[in-house]
């Protein structure tokens, strides 16, 4: 399905996660962040860029890996993206949320 975010038509899944990272822009990220009640600081953008790089390299995203990214630690990651940082950061970064088998 598609939806309009920040004036652009983008592909998303049923939960609102973007399905094509090529369509991602900072403006789109800002609008998603607003809906998720995340205040995008410089640190947040750094984390988002790192997450996108992991996704492009097909590295599965985990809290542990964010903690060892050298950009932030887990405690701060929770402060940057409160209540479920991994899924919120994934949504803002325009990538699918981390999932299990089912």
């Amino acid at each position: 399905m598609t939806t309009t975010i920040a004036g652009q038509e983008v592909s998303v899944n049923a939960e609102g996660y973007m399905t094509d990272l090529n369509q991602w822009t900072k403006e789109i990220a800002l609008e998603i962040a607003k809906a998720e009640e995340v205040n995008m600081t410089d640190k947040c953008w750094e984390v988002i860029a790192w997450i996108q790089e992991q996704y492009r390299n097909e590295n599965p995203l985990t809290i542990r890996k964010v903690g060892k990214s050298g950009i932030t630690d887990i405690k701060e990651f929770y402060e940057l993206f409160p209540n479920g940082p991994l899924k919120k950061a994934s949504k803002i970064a325009g990538i699918p949320k981390p999932v299990g088998c089912i």
Partner: peptide, 16 residues
């Protein structure tokens, strides 16, 4: 769970 729910994939979430 550290994930977003007990079921994380759309069809499984819906059915289970």
């Amino acid at each position: 769970t550290p994930l977003s729910g007990a079921f994380t994939k759309p069809v499984a979430s819906d059915k289970l």
